[in-house]
Amino acid sequence: MDIPGFGQEGQEKLRNTTALVSRTGGLGGPIALQLAAAGIGKLVLAHGGNLQPSDLNRQVLMRHGSLGQPRIESARETLQAFNPHITVETVNANINEENAEELVGSADIVFDAAPRFNERFLLNRQCVRQRKSLIDAAMFSMEGQVVTIVPGLTPCLACLYPEEPPHWNRRFPVLGAVSSLIANIAVVQGICLLTGIGDAHLGKMIYIDTAGMNLRKIAIQRRIDCAVCQSVPSAAP
């Protein structure tokens, strides 16, 4: 990539990187696709369940002909056809208590695109415990946000949300273009973090309201009483 400051060294860094992507839906699918396009060395994808018709408004790795089949297989086939030079490892299950430690341990960086808070909190706990960088992406309707979490350097997800939101509804409004936009921002942040180009916006939440095309960079704070990252010593940036 002929980007100032990136060069051969940046490409080598990506090629030597393993990225875990939690879910391959409206957010995780475009995240995996853009990581593949950028030449990430290995993708580890975790997503359970079979493809439903309602997935197809946003899940760009899926194909209509795969309805009723495991989502993760469709994701793997699309990614390998797109870039046969990368390794794609798949897990036909969502992140859970049984697989989180091993999956996070296998990766250099983690991209979180899960719709359930318990999965996101679990990934956050494992990433903090194993000192792995986590790019957390989320969206709702026409809005979305990305937070880059580097244990010891930044607040963690539990600093942002100290408790599980009681009113979160698993069924949420989604426009594929919005989830793809948020996914692409997450990948940009991850690549900035991995290669050192640009600004990884540590300690900031990037929030976008696409209805008004308003972007905010919000300074988020580390909680001194955080149940997850309180014991992690602060490192110099």
Partner: peptide, 30 residues
């Protein structure tokens, strides 16, 4: 979020001047 920064203890925050307040409901997934 007050004036661009998250407030982790809003109970102890008092309004001393004009402020831009941004209230964010948790969102997840996509």
């Amino acid at each position: 979020v007050v004036d661009g920064s998250q407030i982790t203890n809003p109970d102890s925050f008092s309004l001393e001047r004009d402020h831009d307040l941004f209230l964010m409901m948790p969102i997840s997934g996509g």
